[in-house]
């Protein structure tokens, strides 16, 4: 079904571009060594955060993501300047430089943060859902993690407990087919990951993670099920990274033509051509991209002008 060139679809496209351009800018800042350390980009996977966050009510819902989480923070509504500043180790960063690229958070926007321990946030999301049972918030917790995290004990425990207690958790697997440098297919007997939902007695849905509209619909159904007390849902979104696991990854483990082929089905290409088919004009479409580029460029300038994190504060916040 072609997307009508509705405001929603145009807003989705804007969301995809903001993340894409943010991540491209991060790449440049990392290569220039203004950002230090390991950086994991979500270039190619943007439709999952954009679609999923559109299905949430971020005034009360809670998102728990991985180190590949810049796109999730942006889709939740975090200020791109504060995100750049965090990656740059500046005082004005979302976490004042304490967290860095792989562990940042912005709870004011429902983004309870990235996690750099694979799968560790799945049980924490269960806890956030458990709290909803007592605090009357109607909160749904969404834990997003990769295919590789499906092999982590903590994720299994989280799915079982959420299912046993009918807790409102959306477990969302971003299946990009690789766990770091190893194909998921080599590390499971059945790489149809969503089929595991049945083992926990919860519903499971597969979605094309490159189709932002489809992600929104499937996650919205899952959120509805959670909100109405029917317990957790597992969603598997198939997608791909168009870049390495981290900046600098030579990707020797990946067939060269695989990334090339993926360029034809990545989310921005898919949505742009759908919008074009539905009658959107080139001017309208390039204006969306241009606005994203201008916003993100301005955010980077703001962040680069901010002072470094203040060493005098390093001992603050270990205890209350």
């Amino acid at each position: 079904m072609p997307h009508p060139p509705t405001q929603t679809a145009l807003a989705d496209l804007a969301g995809l571009w903001r993340i894409r351009v943010f991540e491209e800018t991060v790449t440049r800042l990392r290569v220039e060594e203004r950002i230090a350390g390991s950086v994991h980009l979500c270039i190619g996977q943007e439709a999952v955060p954009v679609g999923a966050c559109a299905a949430l009510d971020l005034t009360r819902d809670a998102v728990f993501a991985t180190y590949r989480g810049h796109g999730w923070a942006l889709a939740c509504g975090a200020d791109p300047a504060a995100l750049f500043a965090e990656l740059l180790g500046r005082e004005t960063g979302t976490n004042g430089g304490r967290a860095g690229s792989a562990y940042l958070s912005d709870p004011g926007h429902g983004f309870y943060g990235e996690n750099s321990i694979v799968g560790a946030h799945a049980p924490i999301a269960v806890g956030a859902a458990l709290a909803a049972r007592y605090d009357g918030s109607g909160r749904v917790a969404l834990a997003v993690f990769g295919d590789g995290a499906m092999n982590q004990g903590a994720v299994h425990e989280a799915m079982n407990m959420a299912s046993a207690f009918d807790l409102p958790v959306v477990f969302l697997v971003e299946n990009n087919r690789y766990s770091e440098l190893t194909p998921i297919a080599a590390m499971v007997r059945d790489d149809d990951l969503v089929s595991r939902a049945a083992a926990y007695g919860m519903p499971g849905s597969w979605v094309n993670g490159n189709d932002v509209g489809a992600v929104r619909r499937v996650v919205a159904e899952a959120v509805d099920a959670c909100r109405s007390g029917r317990g957790p849902v597992l969603v598997e979104a198939h997608t791909q990274r168009l870049v390495g696991h981290y900046i600098g990854d030579a990707q020797t483990y990946r067939p060269r033509d695989e990334v090339e082929a993926a360029r034809a089905t990545e989310p921005i290409v898919v949505l742009t051509s759908a919008l074009r088919a539905a009658g959107a004009g080139d001017a309208e479409l390039s204006a969306v991209e241009a606005r994203a580029r201008a916003e993100i460029a301005a955010a980077a300038v703001t962040a680069l002008a901010a002072p470094p994190a203040d060493p005098a504060t390093v001992k603050e916040h270990v205890h209350g």
Partner: peptide, 16 residues
């Protein structure tokens, strides 16, 4: 290291 969590920012790490 003085009983800290470890911060990411290089300026903070040097202080820690």
């Amino acid at each position: 290291t003085e009983d800290l969590r470890i911060p990411a920012a290089p300026a903070l790490q040097r202080a820690a």
